[in-house]
Design a protein around this nucleic acid. Structure first.
Length: 420
DNA sequence: TCTGGGGTCCTAGGACCC
DNA sequence: TCTGGGGTCCTAGGACCC
């Protein structure tokens, strides 16, 4: 059996841990740059606020309703996520962290009744220890465990936040209770196509033949989904593995026209991406840089990107920043109002197995000591304590995040501020 | 005025090889 | 009239997830 443990309204719940006055109130957390609403407390959902709504459209209304609004504080959420996962790891020999707020636990050899009390213990332990409410779904496959978790949330009153699918009858009932668009792996496009073909619920899908599903649902992906719904596990999630690409992309706080400013932004993003790269002990063989206008603005649209290959893979911030800055110069066109830029590192390889050049010391080696020192300083004193001059000083393009809470658990100076 | 960011996998088709 | 068989690699695009 698999359990899926999923934190409720995760970002809002994190904010509530550090501010008791948020309990019982409508609260929302915004995406980067204060763009969209991406986490809502139950009270906010009850007010009719939708996932992904642009903040600016709702701003005044939210204020009128007394909704508490936060810019996103990913440093805090990431740290809280790590603590939740550590607690969960005590409950299973096999924990698969699936996303920032959810994880699969392998639970073999339990009786039905034991599963229920075990789930409640998990809920209580995380609730008491960390102040984060969670729901638990349990079933014989990951897709069904996702479905069970969905039902646990949907029928919170009845379920207490735990839902178990173990018997044939329970499986059939669950499949009939969940519409096809709510199935894990069925997005908007497929949902529309399936509904048009007469498939309304998960149960309807399981009544179709394997060949039919293969034709109508993305080939082998659909067939795997079908088996999972039948209770035969075959979906592998392997998110604990190293990333195959690493990106840092951001919208600007206000439009940018100036090449120097674009280069500063891109240098900053390349620095962040390089930090992530070194954390997983990889080196990049190629760097992609892009810049573009706002697709919502009624101006001439301009989308450009360039991919630069490295002769020898590297994890050096110095080299990656240089490449990114050179790249943006090549695709830059003046008189354009840029809204967003990004850096994507690809062709990642383990730093141990870099294909070296015969006549040159790889920068992975040459800059190793420097990078180690920089990472150490930034980890100890907070990211951004030391940066390259190429990242600029004023950073006028910085995204908006005026309503961010303090990074209570990770930043020494943020904590000090609270104490003072 | 103001609309996020970061990933994965699969498929089809083209180019190329023997 | 009739024009093989088997394979790899790469890329773009489309779908999905949180």
């Amino acid at each position: 059996m698999f359990a899926l443990v999923d934190c409720n309204n995760f970002y809002v719940s994190c904010e509530r841990v550090f501010d008791a006055s948020l309990q019982g109130k409508p609260v929302v957390v915004l995406s980067n740059n204060d763009g969209c609403i991406i986490s809502r407390s139950q009270e906010a959902k009850d007010l009719g606020i939708k996932m992904g709504e642009p903040y600016f459209k709702r701003r005044r209304w939210l204020a009128e309703q007394g909704v508490r609004v936060f810019s996103s504080n990913y440093t805090l959420y990431g740290d809280m996520s790590g603590r939740v996962m550590e607690v969960l790891s005590n409950f299973t020999p096999e924990l698969e962290v699936y996303s920032v707020d959810e994880a699969f636990l392998r639970l073999d050899g339990f009786l039905q009744q034991d599963l229920l009390t075990y789930s409640q213990t998990i809920q209580e332990t995380i609730g008491r220890g960390l102040g984060i409410p969670v729901c638990v779904g349990i079933a014989p496959s990951k897709t069904l465990a996702k479905m069970a978790n969905h039902l646990a949330k949907k029928k919170r009153q009845q379920s207490g936040g735990v839902w178990i699918i173990s018997t044939e009858e329970e499986r059939e009932q669950a499949l009939k209770d969940v519409s096809i668009g709510d199935v894990w792996g069925v997005g908007r496009q497929y949902a529309a196509r399936l509904q048009a073909a007469g498939v309304q619920t998960a149960w309807d899908l399981t009544q179709r033949s394997s060949d039919w599903v293969r034709q109508h649902l993305g080939g082998v992906v659909g067939v795997r989904l079908l088996k999972e719904l039948q209770g035969k596990p075959c979906v592998q999630t392997a998110l604990l593995q190293d990333k195959k690409s690493i990106a840092c992309t951001r919208s600007f706080g206000k439009p940018v026209q100036d090449l120097t400013q674009l280069q500063e932004a891109v240098a900053t993003y390349a620095t962040r991406a390089a930090e992530k790269l070194r954390r997983q002990k990889s080196a990049a063989g190629a760097v992609t840089v892009f810049i573009h206008t706002s697709r919502f603005a009624p101006v001439e649209q301009y989308f450009r990107s360039i991919t630069l290959e490295l002769p020898v893979a590297t994890d050096s911030t110095l080299e990656l920043v240089q490449l990114a800055v050179d790249g943006v110069k090549k695709i830059f066109r003046p008189d354009i109002q840029y809204a967003k830029a990004g850096v994507i590192l690809t062709e990642l390889v383990p730093v141990q197995s870099i294909q070296a050049d015969l006549f040159q010391v790889p920068t992975v080696v040459e800059h190793k000591g420097l990078m180690k020192a920089v990472d150490h300083i930034n980890q100890t004193w907070g990211s951004g304590t030391v940066v390259l001059a190429a990242a600029g000083g004023q950073q006028e393009w910085q995204m908006l995040k005026g309503m961010r809470s303090r990074r209570f658990t990770t930043h020494w100076n943020d904590l000090l501020w609270v104490r003072c």
